[in-house]
Design a protein around this nucleic acid. Structure first.
Ligand SMILES: [Zn+2]
Ligand SMILES: [Zn+2]
Lengths: 316, 316
DNA sequence: GCTATATAACATCAC
DNA sequence: GTGATGTTATATAGC
């Protein structure tokens, strides 16, 4: 096999990607002018799908969206006494991990620059507004909504990625431009005694009392729960810029790996964009359940035959 | 890692399988009595699903089911001039392959025994009637239908597996008990000039004229077409006892691998059982198409950003 | 048009 | 509860 070297493969894929980009960019009415990108903006409404825009609310902390508690997720880790015992100590080690993982992506050093830097001027068409599609949320150019200043037109994924950049800056000691000198207050009740661990890790301003009062929004989920109950994939949960998490000692045994805890409303936002709302997710869940059952039955039939045959043949 | 040896793994899986079998067998009202299997039979109607029984017809050659030509499958290889040129020559080599592949399964030597042999007596509950489920066909104990003697209660898969055993016996020179001394006739028009290649490979009695006259039933599909148009998986298409195929030189280049050609109505029968009829299959097809599109768009977005960034950064 | 390789999703088990 | 491992399905490139 005259296979390519890894470097050549990478190059080939990039070339393919570039070709595809040019082609698809035209499809999206984006013009690429070698170093300067001028698009005629919003023209992707044709790709819009299904959807109910209720999820967007979940991203704006001030809105006290109590959402639904519908899905039968186990509330085990949602118990505050169980989850919030450690007083923000292991954060330093966790931050180390976070920084390492976000800087390993090559260009990540340039990426966290603020939007108004030199880089921003090259785009009349904001790349972060590209139609994300896996669910079709926020594709209609909704009129920015009342008070929804910056988020309009961006997918949940994009908003979260930007928030991650802000968190990154917080970790590096710089204040994000959006929160100048005023001390942060709980988004729910306004108290000044917010949980700084939540601010640092999740970029969410909330006090411990409100956290416990609104578990359907602020409770924590283990990685496994996210995978099973919200059908998120491992790579999605590994992406800190999409869904941050905090680490906590595993209660099953001290030798086990740390638990990874995610914030429920963030997880729900991503999952609902991915699956097209809670209904779409439930439908997919049913589908997989049925699939699993079918697989099991097939294996059972084959296995039973093999078993009975092997049990009978010695007698013949 | 104190991992198990392959043999130990196999053993462990078998043990697990046996346990599962016992458990699930009880669920199915089957009693396993170490070498003797006594079940109270039909009690699985609760598992029945969706369905339209039209597909069963496709399995009875005498019924001139013209089926539908609905799906937009390419009819390229369906062109008889293209497909049926070789006069049953390469069969010998193909048969060798077939025998090899079907005997490599260990117990396959015992399996082809006729139903009324010693083995059959141990089962009051016919294992081949187990609910197959991936589509839910034929689970209701349909009253055997007019003239449908042996096939009632068996899934499409099971029927095909039995037919494969017959074909196997034909290849080995023995006449199957069902076709005694009378020469085979075309199931469509009754002529004696049937295509013996089709009989040997597919176990189907049909003349060349009828083959060409009813392409929606007798045309041939390449393996790739089966995979793409009928959403069958590679392992399913590799299983000769489920879906036999004949080989033909690849027209694209003589150095390429042989084409594998499957009979359309057999493929349709399997696919429709798997997906719950043509409607179910089309639904799944749409689902995958959408999934593919979403994947592509996601990759595009990431790729475009990376590309534009790499194109822009040198300028800054 | 097919197979081989790589990638992602998924099930399973040791920790 | 998580991560490593093997298994399966999908995408691509070479033949
Ligand atoms: Zn509060
Ligand atoms: Zn005929």
């Amino acid at each position: 096999m005259s296979e390519l070297t890894p470097a050549q493969q990478r190059q080939a894929q990039l070339a393919r990607l570039k070709g595809e980009c040019v082609f698809l960019a035209e499809m999206h009415d984006i013009k690429i002018l070698r170093g300067r990108n001028v698009g005629n903006g919003r023209s992707k409404t044709k790709n819009a799908l299904k959807v109910a825009a209720q999820n967007a609310k979940a991203l704006r902390p001030p809105a006290a969206t109590t959402s639904t508690t519908g899905t039968g997720t186990t509330e085990a880790t949602a118990n505050p006494a169980f989850v919030h015992t450690t007083p923000a100590q292991p954060l330093s080690s966790r931050n180390a991990i976070a920084s390492a993982s976000s800087t390993k992506e090559g260009v990540a050093y340039q990426a966290p620059l603020p939007r108004d830097s030199r880089l921003g001027k090259y785009f009349e068409y904001d790349l972060s507004k590209l139609h994300n599609s896996k669910g079709g949320f926020l594709t209609e150019d909704d009129p920015a909504g009342p008070g929804g200043g910056g988020g309009a037109g961006k997918s949940v994924r994009e908003v979260l990625k930007e928030k991650e950049r802000e968190r990154q800056m917080i970790r590096e000691g710089e204040e994000p431009a959006i929160y100048p000198n005023t001390s942060p207050r709980c988004a729910e009740c306004g108290t000044l005694e917010i949980d700084y661990q939540f601010l640092k890790v999740f970029g969410v301003k909330v006090c411990k009392a409100c956290k416990n009062k609104i578990p359907e929004k602020y409770s924590l989920l283990t990685k496994t729960e996210c995978r099973e109950d919200y059908l998120l994939t491992d790579s999605e949960l590994r992406d800190e810029s999409l869904l941050p998490h905090l680490l906590k000692a595993n209660p099953h045994a001290t030798t086990y790996s740390n638990m990874m805890l995610y914030l429920r409303f963030q997880v729900e936002a991503v999952a609902w964009e991915k699956w097209g709302g809670e209904e779409g997710m439930d439908a997919e869940w049913e589908r997989r359940e049925e699939q699993k059952r079918a697989r099991k039955e097939k294996k059972f039939e084959e296995g039973l035959k093999e078993y009975v045959l092997s049990a009978l043949c010695p007698l013949s």
